[in-house]
Design a protein around this nucleic acid. Structure first.
Length: 350
DNA sequence: CGTAGAATTTGTGGCAGAAGCTCAT
DNA sequence: CATGAGCTTCTGCCACAAATTCTAC
């Protein structure tokens, strides 16, 4: 494919002539793989930027959801528009997507993009379409399944406590449990992704030993330094009640005990969160009312869905978290700056 | 149910003073 | 270890326009 497209549908913000397939939130930039590597290999700070695929629908926002029914990746807004409960599409199989950080090799990128069954070697040697065909067919099973994007089993305290639907108009939709076939992770632009990865592979020395080293790849799922999170069933096996456990790092919290009952009118599911010192391991437990009253199998299923939903909210919040001062109303700022003051305090106009 | 008006709440920046921290004695 | 000086960081205060909520029709 040597014919040069005049203007790509979504041009790379850096080079301008390649098709952007990634989005870097930190830079607010749409990038192709080549420029992504160039930009984010500059120094360690840049390499920490989390990059995600670009939304297939709006081409303008980072994708957070993969719809395997449509084979497309969508940002939060587009996902809501396409899959909100009032539409028949709401039954589509979807799962959360996560970005990656660092400067992964082509082999690692292949794994991240869901081409885990493609080696870099085969990518280089295969004709243009075959790799994609292999991907589409999903013929190979086994190891590759280990290297697709996966959902981390963690939630954070603030997510679970303050993510009520009342605080914002957006309510995270239910995301069904991870499907068996999780290879399709790159949406509708897989051909372009493969093409760019192929070009990238040409400029990268072939190192078969390096092929698929998930441990080297930072996909944003590393244990969060802010929280130690343990799989709930490991801790509460004796009770066999589905729970999430979040262990806050602050020792001062360890004496703190509270019980919060959260009623969500939209979901009609009541949750009880309990912060207790659990045998030296302070933890937060969340129980659903339905889980307490329904058979265990059904409770497990519900928990899985809620877990994914909480997980999605957590990821979104983590990505959009801002530590700098945020001015909500510029007009008020302008007004405050021009206001009469006495020793720093606002004074009356007269 | 929709609209208009009233009532209430929110958010804004610079300063002073309190609180916390480091270091020398 | 206790104390004090010097420095840094945090917090509350102020007026009022804008935003939000409530109420009456």
């Amino acid at each position: 494919m040597t014919a040069e497209a005049p203007t790509p549908a979504r041009p790379c913000d850096y080079c301008g002539h390649s098709t952007a397939v990634l989005y870097c939130r930190a830079d607010s930039a749409k990038l192709c793989f080549s420029c992504d590597r160039e930009v984010h290999s500059t120094n360690q700070l840049f390499s920490k930027h989390t990059r995600t695929l670009l939304c297939d629908a709006c081409d303008d926002s980072p994708a957070t959801i993969l719809c395997s029914t449509d084979t497309s990746v969508l940002c939060q807004n587009c996902d809501w528009e396409k899959h909100n409960p009032s539409l028949s599409n709401s039954l589509h199989q979807r799962r959360p997507l996560e970005g990656f950080t660092g400067c992964p090799s082509v082999s690692e990128l292949l794994s991240v993009m869901g081409f885990g069954d493609l080696s870099k070697k085969s990518l280089l040697s295969s004709p243009q379409g075959s790799a994609a065909d292999g991907f589409l067919g999903c013929e190979m099973e086994g190891l590759s399944d280990l290297f697709v994007w996966d959902a981390p089993s963690l939630v954070t305290l603030d997510d679970l406590i303050c993510s009520s639907a009342a605080s914002h108009s957006f309510q995270a939709m239910e995301v069904p449990p991870l499907p068996k076939n999780r290879k399709a992770a790159c949406g509708r632009h897989r051909e372009e992704i493969l093409s760019q990865l192929r070009e990238l592979a040409k400029s990268e020395p072939l190192d078969l030993d390096q092929y698929v080293q998930p441990g080297n790849l930072s996909s944003g799922f590393e244990p969060d330094v802010e929280f130690d999170i343990f799989p709930s069933r490991e801790w509460h096996r004796e009770s066999s009640e589905p729970m999430y456990q979040v262990v806050p790092p602050d020792p001062s919290l360890r004496t703190y005990t509270e019980e919060i009952s959260v009623k969500q009118s939209t979901s009609a599911v009541g949750e009880t969160q309990t912060y207790v010192d659990n045998g030296g391991k302070p933890s937060i437990s969340i129980k659903s009312e339905t889980q307490l009253t329904t058979p265990k199998a059904a409770a497990c299923e519900l928990t899985s869905q809620e877990r994914d939903s909480a997980l999605l909210r957590y990821k979104q919040k983590k990505k959009t978290r801002r530590y700098d001062k945020h001015i909500r109303y510029e007009s008020r700022k302008v007004r405050a700056e021009s206001r009469v003051r006495v020793k720093g305090r606002f004074a009356k106009m007269e």
